[in-house]
Design a protein around this nucleic acid. Sequence first.
RNA 1: GGCCCUAUCGUCUAGUGGUCAGGACAGCGGGUUUUCAAUCCGUUAACCGGAGUUCGACUCUCCGUAGGGUCACCA
Length: 476
Amino acid sequence: MSDTAKKVVTRFAPSPTGLMHVGGLRTGLFAWLWARKNSGTFILRIEDTDKIREMPGSKEQIMESLSWLGLTWDFGPDKPGTWGSCIQSERLSVYKTYAEKLIEKGLAYPDPYTEEEVEAFRKKAEENKLPFLFRNHRPETFESWDGTKPLRFKVPELKRYEWHDEVRGALSAGMEALDDFVLIKADGFPTYNFCHIVDDIEMGVSHVMRGEEFISSTPKFLSLYEALGVQPPIFATLPPILGESGTKKLSKRDGAKDVLDYRAEGYLPGAMVNFLAFIGWNPGGEKEIYSIQELIKSFSIDRIQKAGARFNPEKLDWINKEHIKLLPMEEAFEKMLSYFKDESLSELSLERLKKLLPVAYDRMNTFSDFHTDFKNGEYSYIIEAPVYDQKNIIWKTDTLENAQKHLREVKSILSTLPDDLWNLENIKHAVWEYAEKEGRGNVLWPLRYSLSGKDKSPDPFTLAFALGKDETLKRI
RNA sequence: GGCCCUAUCGUCUAGUGGUCAGGACAGCGGGUUUUCAAUCCGUUAACCGGAGUUCGACUCUCCGUAGGGUCACCA
């Protein structure tokens, strides 16, 4: 960084109106990565100026989601900066000061109309197939503002705006994008259009990252920056995350889940971050599994994608699995077991369950998979002996008599294996020779089936080991 | 409707005028100590269309087409 370069300050500014889903979080992640990459500052700002839509607990949920993923903020709701609070509803006086500055300059005025009147203007414009512009109804003289009416911005100059976007390149829009928008609502709270700019100025934000829905209002923001005499920050427009259907932006209807649901389902935060980072960005090479540190190192704005990307849960599962593989196995086992806390299993069942952990580990994508399969009855044989149709123990073209003969034989072989040598390797070793001789399937399928009673299950040796010698011999 | 944005395998993408258009997920096929899973190997599959610039266009320009965004006292 050169001496003249501004310190990188980014912010994530969600409004606490509902659950935090992956779309919003990805925006926060990119801002965070950019701040961390440049040893800059990351601010979490709560934009709670719409008191009607605000949802209790939402702010806490946002903070918890970010914390889970390790996206730490330097300033936030719990850490005010030199500018004061990071919660907009606690900054009303700041916005008022800026509003008064604009009034003094003659660039803000109270809206003399009632809501109904404005609505009528809008309707008429619509009927005439014209875009509604309040500035066409701007009063000739401005009243003084007593705070009971909405305060509107007076566009200083109608002109075409051209600006640079770090992702999209040169952008521009004509004067029809400019209007006398509301700065402060009748309820005394500022609008997003106004207060986010005031805050970005006050907090020294250098890079603004947000979704493409803000491109069309950027001329308004630029005109406001101009009115305030402030140099605008650097803009970077992020591509939308599309739902699985692929057309609309990801929404709750489209399966967008609360970020914390992923935690509940057993996804690793590192995997989640890895996955989110790769929606609409990628570092180039063929490596796809990145740690958070590696992401910080390789993140760059110029590799952010322009077009929208679909949310692909299968890829998330794969990435999660790859991250799980990097974890010590003991840790993974613990996480898998944590889902069984409320199952009130017997000591014996629990013991068997633990012996199945290694095979369940190989099969899973998330830590909750083992428990989910268990709930679906796929492991019912660890609790009680299966009831099944004799016919099912026959492997392919073999006969029932043969199958029964094989089982008797295996039983006698296994009964000679001492209790203290009852482990996976020895069981396999003991049965293997006989199975080879008689045909693997002919022997192993009946064995597996008699132990599990299932068409699909882990291999017979694992089952025998998990069930223990007595139970195994009993079931055969 | 006005204004604006976007466009490579089914999906996520690499590619910045000359590539057999590469990788990953999914799919398909096969190997691995029986089943399912896992794993390993292999494999199918794409430059939205049309002009133009150029010796040469996925890459540059224009025009279409399709999709998306936005036109609030919501953010």
